[in-house]
Lab assay of single mutants.
Amino acid sequence: KELVLVLYDYQEKSPREVTVKKGDILTLLNSTNKDAWKVEVDDRQGFIPAAYLKKL
């Protein structure tokens, strides 16, 4: 599985998104959309803007 590093805090703005903190390391589920990547956070799945993430 692929991991990503969170570069900036992000507060979810819709039910399809998830809230993350800078420095979190998350499982990347889908990065086919260049604008928003799907990740898993504490058994929740949701989207975060790709600009907030860096592949490890």
Rank of each mutant, 00 (worst) to 15 (best):
residue 43 D to R: 09
residue 22 K to Y: 04
residue 49 P to H: 04
residue 42 D to I: 08
residue 56 L to A: 03
residue 24 D to F: 06
residue 5 L to V: 10
residue 34 K to N: 12
residue 46 G to K: 05
residue 25 I to Q: 03
residue 32 T to Y: 10
residue 44 R to Q: 07
residue 7 L to G: 00
residue 33 N to C: 13
residue 34 K to M: 12
residue 47 F to P: 01
residue 38 K to C: 15
residue 32 T to P: 03
residue 11 Q to T: 14
residue 25 I to A: 00
residue 54 K to N: 05
residue 3 L to Q: 10
residue 40 E to F: 06
residue 28 L to K: 01
residue 20 V to T: 03
residue 5 L to E: 09
residue 7 L to Y: 03
residue 16 R to S: 14
residue 23 G to L: 03
residue 46 G to P: 03
residue 55 K to L: 13
residue 44 R to D: 03
residue 38 K to F: 15
residue 24 D to K: 05
residue 20 V to N: 00
residue 51 A to G: 13
residue 49 P to L: 06
residue 44 R to W: 15
residue 53 L to T: 01
residue 48 I to R: 00
residue 15 P to T: 09
residue 34 K to E: 12
residue 36 A to T: 12
residue 9 D to Q: 03
residue 46 G to M: 15
residue 41 V to M: 10
residue 49 P to E: 05
residue 36 A to H: 14
residue 4 V to T: 01
residue 43 D to C: 13
residue 52 Y to G: 08
residue 30 N to Y: 06
residue 23 G to N: 06
residue 55 K to R: 12
residue 22 K to M: 07
residue 20 V to Y: 08
residue 55 K to W: 07
residue 18 V to F: 14
residue 14 S to L: 09
residue 6 V to K: 00
residue 7 L to N: 02
residue 55 K to V: 12
residue 35 D to R: 11
residue 19 T to Q: 04
residue 34 K to W: 09
residue 40 E to D: 05
residue 8 Y to G: 07
residue 19 T to N: 06
residue 13 K to H: 08
residue 40 E to I: 12
residue 45 Q to T: 13
residue 36 A to F: 15
residue 16 R to F: 14
residue 36 A to V: 15
residue 17 E to A: 08
residue 33 N to W: 09
residue 35 D to M: 12
residue 54 K to A: 11
residue 16 R to K: 12
residue 44 R to T: 07
residue 8 Y to P: 01
residue 47 F to V: 07
residue 41 V to E: 02
residue 22 K to C: 08
residue 17 E to P: 08
residue 33 N to G: 10
residue 30 N to I: 08
residue 1 K to P: 13
residue 34 K to A: 13
residue 4 V to M: 00
residue 25 I to E: 01
residue 14 S to T: 12
residue 11 Q to V: 14
residue 36 A to W: 15
residue 14 S to H: 12
residue 4 V to K: 01
residue 51 A to V: 11
residue 2 E to C: 15
residue 28 L to R: 00
residue 54 K to W: 08
residue 51 A to K: 15
residue 5 L to M: 10
residue 38 K to R: 11
residue 42 D to Q: 12
residue 29 L to T: 04
residue 25 I to P: 00
residue 25 I to G: 01
residue 12 E to L: 13
residue 16 R to Y: 15
residue 27 T to L: 14
residue 30 N to C: 13
residue 46 G to W: 12
residue 10 Y to S: 01
residue 12 E to Y: 06
residue 16 R to Q: 14
residue 43 D to W: 06
residue 45 Q to E: 12
residue 6 V to Y: 00
residue 44 R to S: 06
residue 30 N to T: 08
residue 43 D to P: 03
residue 15 P to W: 08
residue 16 R to E: 15
residue 3 L to N: 04
residue 20 V to H: 02
residue 7 L to Q: 03
residue 37 W to H: 02
residue 8 Y to R: 14
residue 51 A to Y: 13
residue 26 L to Y: 04
residue 15 P to G: 11
residue 3 L to S: 06
residue 29 L to K: 03
residue 41 V to I: 13
residue 36 A to Y: 15
residue 26 L to T: 01
residue 21 K to I: 06
residue 40 E to C: 14
residue 55 K to T: 07
residue 1 K to E: 09
residue 22 K to W: 04
residue 54 K to S: 10
residue 8 Y to V: 10
residue 50 A to S: 14
residue 31 S to D: 15
residue 6 V to W: 01
residue 56 L to H: 04
residue 53 L to I: 05
residue 17 E to I: 04
residue 46 G to A: 12
residue 50 A to E: 05
residue 49 P to N: 06
residue 52 Y to T: 06
residue 8 Y to E: 13
residue 3 L to K: 11
residue 35 D to A: 10
residue 46 G to V: 15
residue 25 I to D: 00
residue 39 V to Q: 01
residue 52 Y to M: 10
residue 4 V to Q: 00
residue 16 R to D: 15
residue 53 L to D: 03
residue 56 L to K: 02
residue 55 K to A: 07
residue 5 L to A: 04
residue 44 R to I: 08
residue 31 S to H: 09
residue 22 K to D: 01
residue 7 L to R: 04
residue 23 G to C: 09
residue 40 E to S: 10
residue 31 S to V: 05
residue 9 D to V: 03
residue 11 Q to C: 12
residue 55 K to Y: 09
residue 10 Y to G: 01
residue 52 Y to R: 05
residue 6 V to H: 00
residue 4 V to Y: 05
residue 19 T to G: 05
residue 11 Q to H: 13
residue 6 V to F: 00
residue 48 I to E: 02
residue 52 Y to I: 15
residue 52 Y to C: 15
residue 28 L to S: 01
residue 48 I to S: 02
residue 53 L to C: 11
residue 18 V to I: 15
residue 54 K to Y: 10
residue 21 K to Q: 08
residue 48 I to F: 02
residue 55 K to I: 14
residue 27 T to R: 13
residue 3 L to W: 14
residue 52 Y to D: 05
residue 16 R to M: 14
residue 19 T to M: 05
residue 12 E to N: 07
residue 11 Q to S: 12
residue 1 K to I: 13
residue 48 I to L: 12
residue 6 V to P: 02
residue 36 A to D: 09
residue 37 W to V: 03
residue 31 S to A: 12
residue 30 N to W: 06
residue 20 V to W: 10
residue 22 K to I: 04
residue 45 Q to V: 15
residue 42 D to E: 12
residue 6 V to C: 05
